Amino acid sequence: MHLCVGLVRGGCNGPCPVFKTEEHCCNSGKCGPTTYSKYFKDRCPDVYSYPKDDATSTFTCPSGTNYKVVFCP
């Protein structure tokens, strides 16, 4: 799940394509939560909000599952 930071045609961008910084892109694999991911995580604690987020926030569904996307308030 990505945080919507900048609107683009057909949707929105996450922080990496908008800010293009290591803090937001985590290309090195050594990153932590940002202001944006903390805001999101505070409101939806079970979601995966940045590349190195808690592994307990990663969920998968079996193949053939019908997905329904629900955004937190």
Rank of each mutant, 00 (worst) to 15 (best):
residue 31 C to D: 03
residue 51 P to R: 01
residue 66 N to T: 13
residue 4 C to E: 00
residue 20 K to W: 01
residue 65 T to D: 08
residue 15 P to Q: 11
residue 6 G to R: 14
residue 40 F to Y: 12
residue 15 P to Y: 00
residue 63 S to H: 08
residue 42 D to Y: 08
residue 8 V to A: 06
residue 59 F to H: 15
residue 14 G to E: 04
residue 26 C to M: 04
residue 56 T to F: 02
residue 11 G to D: 10
residue 66 N to V: 01
residue 49 S to A: 15
residue 1 M to V: 10
residue 68 K to Y: 01
residue 30 K to T: 02
residue 25 C to Y: 08
residue 46 D to W: 10
residue 33 P to S: 12
residue 9 R to L: 10
residue 22 E to T: 02
residue 33 P to L: 05
residue 26 C to H: 03
residue 24 H to I: 03
residue 10 G to D: 02
residue 39 Y to F: 12
residue 11 G to T: 10
residue 64 G to F: 07
residue 42 D to N: 15
residue 38 K to T: 11
residue 46 D to E: 09
residue 37 S to P: 12
residue 25 C to Q: 00
residue 12 C to W: 08
residue 55 A to D: 11
residue 8 V to Y: 00
residue 60 T to S: 15
residue 41 K to F: 04
residue 29 G to W: 04
residue 72 C to R: 10
residue 60 T to Q: 13
residue 69 V to Y: 13
residue 31 C to S: 06
residue 49 S to M: 13
residue 54 D to Q: 12
residue 43 R to M: 15
residue 3 L to G: 12
residue 67 Y to S: 08
residue 46 D to G: 10
residue 6 G to F: 01
residue 10 G to F: 07
residue 46 D to Y: 15
residue 57 S to L: 07
residue 64 G to A: 09
residue 12 C to I: 07
residue 51 P to C: 02
residue 26 C to T: 07
residue 28 S to G: 06
residue 73 P to H: 15
residue 41 K to M: 09
residue 44 C to Q: 10
residue 26 C to G: 04
residue 3 L to A: 07
residue 17 P to K: 01
residue 34 T to I: 00
residue 73 P to L: 13
residue 19 F to N: 07
residue 16 C to Y: 01
residue 13 N to I: 02
residue 50 Y to C: 04
residue 16 C to E: 03
residue 38 K to D: 11
residue 12 C to Q: 06
residue 40 F to P: 01
residue 57 S to F: 06
residue 7 L to M: 09
residue 39 Y to T: 09
residue 47 V to K: 09
residue 61 C to G: 05
residue 45 P to R: 14
residue 70 V to M: 12
residue 59 F to N: 08
residue 61 C to K: 14
residue 48 Y to E: 10
residue 59 F to P: 02
residue 41 K to A: 13
residue 64 G to K: 12
residue 45 P to I: 02
residue 49 S to W: 12
residue 59 F to A: 09
residue 18 V to M: 10
residue 3 L to C: 11
residue 15 P to V: 00
residue 39 Y to M: 13
residue 45 P to C: 10
residue 55 A to T: 02
residue 67 Y to T: 09
residue 23 E to A: 08
residue 40 F to A: 15
residue 69 V to N: 04
residue 30 K to Q: 00
residue 34 T to W: 03
residue 30 K to P: 00
residue 41 K to Y: 10
residue 26 C to A: 08
